[in-house]
């Protein structure tokens, strides 16, 4: 039965290593990263001191953790802009409890923060997956609610380093092999997320729902449940980011991490996660996160330019998305050409 239309004669051909590199989805981002790295080598050599690099990774770990959660939600076709508020609520509650019970081991606060984050995510997921609210609206509302709760619980009080136990701060500030713990935790989370998204059923269901809801429905996938799960995961990661944040800076206040949700979304977009849902890979988000940190660090080191940091980051996002759209169109064109061979 080999008589079906031969439309993709090249399909079975092995690609050469060169072609595989060129076709690698994150190729453009890596080139950008290398170019930026070279530029930095000449203009701000200070960036290449090991201490600088390690500090850069430490300071950007929170963004990266938030971006993992945000990615999971975006893959389903949703969005969560309440993550920074979730971070603040979980940070405020667990840090306040920590100062009141300094003898309790820090792992307890990690669990508490995960639970608070998961609850916040569960509520988002309930609104979106079960009540069918628009993700942007639902999480806009909960963004205010969670931040408001953080304010109420903290009473607007700042917690300063003298209140922090060493057991607590070492979670982020300790280091192994010269790299901060918070960075190690981020790396582990990336690995776990990668395995989860590629090799487990719940992870693959997230992609399935994002790429075609209708198909998911007739395939018997419980779309509401997958949606709720994605927001719970995102919330839990944001909650974890809460304790890691306060532990990292030894400071806690309800207004922490203001605007971080946009940074997380920006990393996802830069890393090629489509806001329509269904496409995006963890390696893209890793590179997106690294690229974003290098950019901000690099600009921060330039004396006259640092005031331009936000504007430049915005411009870079536009360029990155433009490149994404361009490559996407090229792919579609190529597919049409191959189909055209049939006509």
């Amino acid at each position: 039965m080999a008589a079906f239309p031969k439309t993709r004669t090249s399909a079975q051909k092995q690609e050469s290593i060169f072609e595989r590199i060129l076709n690698y989805k994150q190729f453009g981002l890596i080139v950008a990263l290398i170019l930026l790295g070279l530029l930095a080598k000449f203009i701000t050599p200070a960036m290449y001191q090991p201490a600088s690099l390690v500090a850069m990774l430490r300071n950007n770990s929170i963004y990266a953790i938030l971006a993992i959660g945000e990615m999971v939600v975006i893959l389903t076709g949703g969005i969560d802009i309440s993550i920074a508020s979730t971070l603040s609520l979980s940070g405020v509650i667990s840090t306040t409890l920590m100062t009141q019970n300094p003898s309790v081991p820090a792992i307890v606060w990690v669990i508490v923060s995960l639970a608070i984050g998961a609850l916040c995510g569960l509520f988002n997921g309930f609104l979106i997956g079960k009540l069918k609210m628009t993700p942007m609206i639902a999480t806009l509302a909960t963004m205010y609610i969670y931040r408001g709760l953080a304010f109420l619980i903290s009473g607007g009080v700042w917690l300063f380093p003298n209140k922090f136990t060493e057991d607590f701060t070492v979670m982020s500030q300790g280091s192994i092999l010269g790299i901060y713990n918070i960075t190690w935790i981020t790396i582990i989370l990336f690995l776990v997320a990668g395995v989860f998204l590629s090799y487990t059923q719940p992870g693959r269901r997230i992609y399935a729902v994002g790429t075609n809801v209708e198909s998911a429905h007739v395939s018997g996938i419980k779309i509401g449940n997958v949606t709720v799960m994605s927001y719970v995961l995102c919330g839990a990661l944001s909650g974890l980011a809460g304790v890691l944040y306060t532990a990292n800076y030894s400071i806690c206040y309800y207004g922490i991490a203001d605007g971080f949700e946009m940074q997380a979304i920006a990393i996802c977009v830069l890393g090629g996660v489509s806001l329509i849902g269904g496409t995006g890979r963890i390696d893209g988000v890793v590179i997106g996160a690294v690229l974003m940190s290098v950019i901000s660090y690099f600009i921060g080191l330039l004396p006259g330019l640092s005031v331009w940091q936000d504007a430049i980051q915005g411009a870079i996002i536009i360029v990155a998305v433009a490149i994404n759209i361009f490559t996407e169109r090229m792919t579609i064109k190529r597919i049409l050409k191959e189909r055209g061979a049939m006509i």
């Binding site: 693959r204 399935a208 994002g210 790429t211 198909s215 998911a216 007739v218 395939s219 018997g220 496409t279």
Partner: peptide
Amino acid sequence: VTSFPDLSVTENIFMG
């Protein structure tokens, strides 16, 4: 055809 366009042929066949 109710497939998952962004997923591979393999995954479409084994869905579920």
